[in-house]
Amino acid sequence: MSTLVETPATNVIQLQPRLRNAAELEQAAVLGNSGKLANVELDRWANRLARVLIARGAAGHARIALAIDPQIEATVATSAVVKLGAIPASVAQDATAAPGARLGITTKERRPELSDAIDWLLLDDRSTLQRYLVSSDAPITAAERLTERKSA
């Protein structure tokens, strides 16, 4: 039995064109296809993606390249990287890689222009989506971050 409760969201804001730092990222919020996402949803999506990154070998303090154009996906990916204690490194439109990054997040559209020196996670790949959808959206624990650092 579903117990869906609909209440007006009070923590929904428009995404800013560019987020300048982690504090702004944490304040970003969105909902649905309208270019908005509630803070709670951003947190859940980022937790799922962080777990996919952990399974892929992401470690704290590592640089993770981000070559993502859709704003919502870029915001979620940046938040996921920050949750791991890793460093998001944006890949500019005219660049092929982010120096020091061995793992990256992108889309099928951007992948052909990017360096093969980075292990790219394709957000819009079917297998990525399947892993993402079955990942827990519970908060990332210190033990998960610590376990990953030890194994990396």
Rank of each mutant, 00 (worst) to 15 (best):
E148C: 11
R56K: 15
S135L: 03
R145W: 04
I13R: 04
L49S: 11
V76S: 05
Q130L: 12
I72N: 01
L114D: 07
A62N: 10
Q16N: 04
L66S: 05
E113V: 12
E148H: 13
V52C: 10
I87P: 02
P17S: 09
T107N: 13
A58N: 04
P99Q: 08
L25S: 04
R20L: 09
G32L: 07
A98S: 11
T147G: 01
E24D: 12
L122I: 15
E73H: 09
L4W: 02
E26A: 15
T106E: 03
R20V: 10
A22W: 07
T141L: 12
L129Q: 15
T147Y: 02
A50T: 15
R110V: 11
A101V: 12
S136I: 08
A98F: 01
V91T: 07
I68E: 00
V91I: 15
E73I: 07
A58H: 00
R48F: 08
I105Q: 12
N39T: 14
A138K: 14
D137I: 04
G35H: 00
G35K: 02
R63P: 06
A92E: 11
A152T: 11
S79G: 10
D43N: 15
L123Y: 05
A80T: 13
R51Q: 06
A38C: 06
E41K: 02
I72Q: 08
T96Y: 00
A117S: 12
P17C: 10
A55K: 15
S127V: 10
P112S: 11
A59Q: 10
L19W: 01
R149C: 05
N33I: 10
Q16A: 12
T10K: 07
T141S: 15
A59P: 00
A62F: 06
E73F: 05
A46F: 03
V30R: 00
E6S: 14
T128I: 06
R111H: 11
A23S: 12
A138F: 03
V82N: 11
Q16K: 12
P139A: 15
N11V: 07
G35Y: 00
R63V: 15
R131N: 13
K108V: 07
N21G: 06
R131V: 03
I68A: 01
A86L: 03
R145S: 10
V134H: 13
P8D: 07
V76F: 00
R48T: 09
K150C: 10
E6L: 13
L133F: 09
D137R: 02
S127D: 14
A97Q: 13
G57H: 02
A89D: 06
R145P: 06
G100Y: 03
A50R: 02
I13C: 01
I87A: 03
V5N: 08
W120N: 13
G35M: 00
R51D: 06
L49W: 04
E144Q: 14
V82E: 10
D119Y: 05
R126I: 14
M1I: 09
A80E: 06
L37Y: 00
L121D: 06
A152D: 10
T147S: 05
T78F: 02
V76D: 01
E144N: 12
R110Q: 13
A58R: 04
N33E: 06
I64L: 14
N33P: 12
L129I: 14
G85M: 08
T96D: 11
